[in-house]
């Protein structure tokens, strides 16, 4: 079987993989939004570019698992730098995030441009990680993305009780003797993982939207955390599939922006249509 209803088999598999990423990003993003860390992954997202370029330079290969492993290392390193800045300087959090984001993106661009300028074979395609491009993904790549996403969702399902309590009332959780800081780091690490697996589809610049917009759209429809996570996952899934479909049809269109616009459209509709969630407003 090479096609279904005229759609190439590979496109279907890729769409399924990216759909899984969209779902997981919505679920995990919801926890980030509930913990008031909506943009926790943004600096890490911009830093992934360094990892992608460095992984390519070190290994000379362009296999997705290699590049994404590099991206994950860079993402975690950037979060580590953020922690260090908070711990050792008096720079405020918002500025620290902007510093890590801007400087790491600059380093990523420097590496990418250097690779391009030297004409290293295979280096040209790395720019696709800026804005996302799913056309080049293989079925194996999609399988990897789906597997990581499934593992992330499973982890959240296991620790849902813990994550929700820490997000709602960290002081109470700490009074129970829970390691709130560890749980917080785990959450941020999960967001970083989602940012990394979201990279091929949404790109470093826009992947943050994948963990922010579906959750806030879902929040308009429900007052229960569990339902919100599920809905956010579905909205993420629909947006991801729409992005893949659109860029399959329109040749030069990057997937990232399309996914974001789809999610934004669902958010706008949710604002208009959802039964008045706001008290008093």
């Amino acid at each position: 079987m090479t096609s279904l209803a005229g759609i190439p088999y590979n496109t279907l598999v890729v769409a399924a993989g990216v759909a899984a990423v969209g779902f997981a990003a919505g679920v995990i993003g919801s926890l980030g939004v509930l913990r008031k860390r909506a943009l926790a992954g943004d600096a890490a997202a911009h830093a992934t570019l360094v990892g992608v370029a460095a992984a390519f330079l070190v290994t000379g290969r362009r296999d997705l698992p290699v590049l994404l492993l590099g991206a994950l290392v860079a993402a975690v390193a950037s979060l580590g730098v953020l922690v260090l800045i908070r711990r050792f300087t008096r720079t405020r959090d918002d500025a620290a995030t902007a510093i890590v984001l801007g400087v790491s993106f600059g380093l990523g661009i420097t590496l990418l441009s250097g690779i391009t300028a030297r004409g290293i074979p295979g280096g040209g395609g790395l720019e696709q990680f800026l804005l996302g491009h799913t056309a080049a993904l293989t079925a194996a790549d999609a399988g990897l993305l789906a597997a990581v996403s499934a593992a992330a969702v499973l982890l959240v399902w296991l620790g849902l009780k813990e994550a929700v309590l820490v997000a709602f009332d960290p002081d109470f959780a700490a009074a129970l003797g829970w390691p709130v800081t560890v749980i917080d780091y785990a959450l941020v690490a999960l967001v970083a993982v989602m940012v990394v697996v979201g990279l091929p589809a949404a790109g470093a610049v826009l992947v943050t939207a994948l963990v922010v917009i579906p959750p806030v759209a879902a929040r308009q429809w429900t007052d229960r955390a569990g339902t919100m996570l599920l809905l956010a996952g579905l909205i993420g899934l629909v947006s991801a599939v729409a992005g893949v479909a659109a860029s399959a049809v329109v040749p030069r269109l990057a997937t990232g922006p399309t996914i974001v616009l789809m999610a934004a459209a669902i958010f706008a509709l949710s604002l208009l249509l959802a039964p008045g969630r706001r008290r008093g407003a």
């Binding site: 008031k36 009780k161 997000a167 003797g177 955390a225 919100m228």
Partner: peptide
């Protein structure tokens, strides 16, 4: 100290009092 706009019900919050005895990962 908490965000009362958080999407949990009254019952959800009271159940949080039982979490310490429940232990990790049990609902």
């Amino acid at each position: 100290t908490v965000d009362w706009d958080f999407p949990v019900s009254v019952m959800d919050v009271v159940l949080m009092g039982t979490y310490a005895r429940l232990g990790w990962f049990r609902r």
